[in-house]
């Protein structure tokens, strides 16, 4: 990105604009971080409460039933179910620190169960796509950003965000299930 910008600036004869931009970016970053620090501290605190009171574990146990039906595990893969649930529960609550280790463990467990190494199974792909569509219930960073920018109601993007997440998660799940079903028929 930097190179493209500089080449474009040189080609259009705007060395001055380029210099101004290069010297302002760092300052903007520091401002942004300071404005986000308060929100991150607050939501970090709330996450700390949730983590230490085991809330994610509770949500994860409740997800096991529905998810075991959604995922068509190949033999041996179902050992990953608790980690799959833990990962998605932590993601929902916005606890990135807790979700990634569980997610990677789930992927490794599923990978170890396969006969064909290197080939992603349908359950692995569904899990991956669920992880890329964000199932987070509260967009904490965006609320903080809006609060600091002086938005009238910083939290009023929560509902549209939830709906957009629901659409993308439903689409991702649908595509994965369709692809998996088509393959089984063959």
């Amino acid at each position: 990105m930097l190179l493209v910008g500089i080449v474009y600036a040189a080609a259009t004869g705007q060395a001055e604009a380029a210099q101004r931009a290069l010297l302002s970016g760092g300052g903007q970053a520091v401002e942004l971080c300071i404005s986000l620090a308060g929100t991150y501290a607050f939501f970090g605190g709330v996450m700390g409460l949730m983590r230490e009171s085991g809330l994610a574990g509770g949500v994860a146990r409740r997800l096991e039933g529905p998810l075991s039906r959604l995922f068509r595990f190949e033999p041996g893969e179902e050992a990953a179910l608790p980690d799959v649930c833990m990962n998605l529960a932590a993601d929902m609550l916005g606890m990135g620190n807790a979700s990634t280790p569980a997610g990677l463990r789930a992927m490794r467990t599923m990978a170890a169960a396969k006969r064909e190494p290197g080939r992603a199974s349908s359950a692995m792909l569904l899990f991956l796509v669920l992880n890329t569509t964000s199932v987070q219930l509260l967009p904490a960073t965006m609320i903080g950003l809006r609060a600091q920018a002086g938005a009238a109601n910083p939290a009023d993007i929560v509902l549209p965000t939830l709906l957009a997440t629901a659409v993308s998660t439903a689409c991702g799940t649908g595509i994965c299930l369709l692809c998996a079903a088509r393959e089984r028929r063959r």
């Binding site: 569509t133 957009a164 994965c176």
Partner: peptide
């Protein structure tokens, strides 16, 4: 995630994830 599982054949992972993203953007 694919790296952690040592996956070399990711099949429909990227198209499915990007299609889901596009659906979210349009929504």
């Amino acid at each position: 995630y694919l790296g952690a599982a040592g996956v070399t054949r990711s099949r429909y992972a990227v198209p499915a994830a990007l299609a889901a993203y596009a659906a979210g953007v349009i929504a």
